Amino acid sequence: TETRTFTDEREARRFEQEARDNGKDVQVRESNGKFEVRVK
């Protein structure tokens, strides 16, 4: 599991989409204006 934290939602979404395109299981959590993207 890899976790990346972004402050920019667009960057978080781009990373999320890229991971999904690669067939990964992705979860995005938002807290305090930060976006935590977990990739399995």
Results as ranks from 00 to 15, higher is better:
Glu18Pro: 00
Phe15Ala: 05
Arg29Tyr: 15
Lys24Thr: 04
Thr1Asp: 13
Lys24Glu: 05
Phe15Asn: 01
Arg13Pro: 00
Val26His: 00
Thr1Gly: 12
Arg29Leu: 14
Arg20Val: 06
Arg14Ile: 12
Glu30Asn: 08
Gly23Thr: 02
Glu9Val: 08
Ala19Ile: 04
Arg20Gln: 05
Glu18Cys: 14
Asp8His: 05
Ala19Phe: 03
Asp21Lys: 14
Phe35Lys: 01
Lys24Tyr: 15
Ser31Val: 15
Glu2Tyr: 15
Asp21His: 10
Val37Lys: 01
Asn22His: 11
Thr5Ser: 08
Glu36Arg: 05
Thr5Ala: 06
Ser31Phe: 15
Asp21Arg: 14
Val39Leu: 06
Phe15Ser: 02
Val39His: 02
Phe35Thr: 03
Thr7Arg: 07
Glu36Asp: 04
Ser31Pro: 02
Asp8Ser: 09
Lys24Met: 14
Arg13Trp: 06
Gly23Ala: 04
Val26Leu: 02
Phe6Glu: 00
Lys34Tyr: 13
Arg20Gly: 03
Asn22Gly: 09
Arg38Phe: 14
Ser31Asn: 12
Arg10Met: 11
Arg20His: 05
Thr5Asp: 03
Val39Gln: 03
Val26Gly: 01
Lys34Thr: 12
Val28Ser: 04
Asp8Asn: 10
Ser31Met: 14
Val39Thr: 08
Ala12Met: 07
Glu30Val: 14
Asn32Tyr: 07
Asp25Gln: 12
Glu11Leu: 08
Val26Ser: 03
Glu9Leu: 08
Arg14Met: 11
Val39Pro: 02
Gln17Lys: 12
Gly23Phe: 06
Ala19Thr: 04
Glu16Lys: 02
Arg38Thr: 15
Arg14Trp: 06
Arg20Thr: 05
Gln27His: 10
Gly23Ile: 02
Gln17Glu: 07
Asn32Met: 08
Ala19Asp: 01
Glu2Ser: 08
Thr3Val: 14
Glu11Thr: 06
Arg38Leu: 14
Gly23Asp: 04
Val28Thr: 07
Thr5Gln: 07
Phe15Asp: 01
Arg29His: 11
Phe15His: 03
Glu30Ile: 13
Asn22Thr: 09
Phe35Ala: 00
Lys34His: 10
Arg29Phe: 15
Asn32His: 08
Gln17Trp: 07
Ala19Gln: 13
Glu16Pro: 00
Gly33Trp: 00
Ala12Leu: 04
Glu16Arg: 02
Ser31Leu: 15
Phe6Leu: 00
Glu9Ala: 08
Val39Phe: 07
Glu36Leu: 11
Ala12Trp: 03
Arg4Asp: 01
Asn32Cys: 13
Gln17Gly: 05
Ala12Glu: 00
Arg4Met: 09
Arg13Met: 08
Val28Tyr: 11
Phe35Pro: 00
Glu36Ile: 15
Thr5Lys: 05
Gln27Lys: 07
Thr1Ala: 11
Asp21Met: 13
Thr3Trp: 14
Asp8Leu: 04
Asn32Ile: 02
Arg14Ser: 08
Lys40Asn: 12
Thr1Gln: 10
Ala12Pro: 00
Val26Gln: 01
Lys24His: 13
Phe15Leu: 03
Thr7Ala: 09
Arg4Gly: 02
Thr3Cys: 15
Arg20Ala: 04
Thr5Met: 10
Ala19His: 06
Glu18Ala: 11
Glu11Ala: 09
Lys40Leu: 14
Glu36Ala: 04
Lys24Leu: 14
Lys40Gln: 12
Val28Arg: 04
Thr5Phe: 15
Ser31Arg: 13
Glu11Phe: 04
Gly23Met: 05
Gly33Phe: 01
Asn22Glu: 12
Ala19Lys: 05
Thr3Pro: 05
Asn32Glu: 09
Asp8Tyr: 04
Phe6Gly: 01
Arg38Tyr: 14
Thr7Ser: 11
Arg10Tyr: 11
Val28Pro: 01
Lys34Cys: 13
Asn32Lys: 07
Gly23Lys: 05
Lys34Phe: 14
Gln27Tyr: 14
Thr1Ile: 13
Gly23Pro: 01
Arg13Phe: 06
Glu2Asp: 09
Lys24Arg: 11
Glu11Tyr: 04
Asp8Glu: 07
Ala19Tyr: 04
Asn22Trp: 09
Phe35Trp: 15
Val39Cys: 06
Asn32Ala: 07
Gln17Leu: 08
Lys40Val: 13
Glu11Arg: 03
Glu11Lys: 05
Arg4Gln: 06
Arg13His: 06
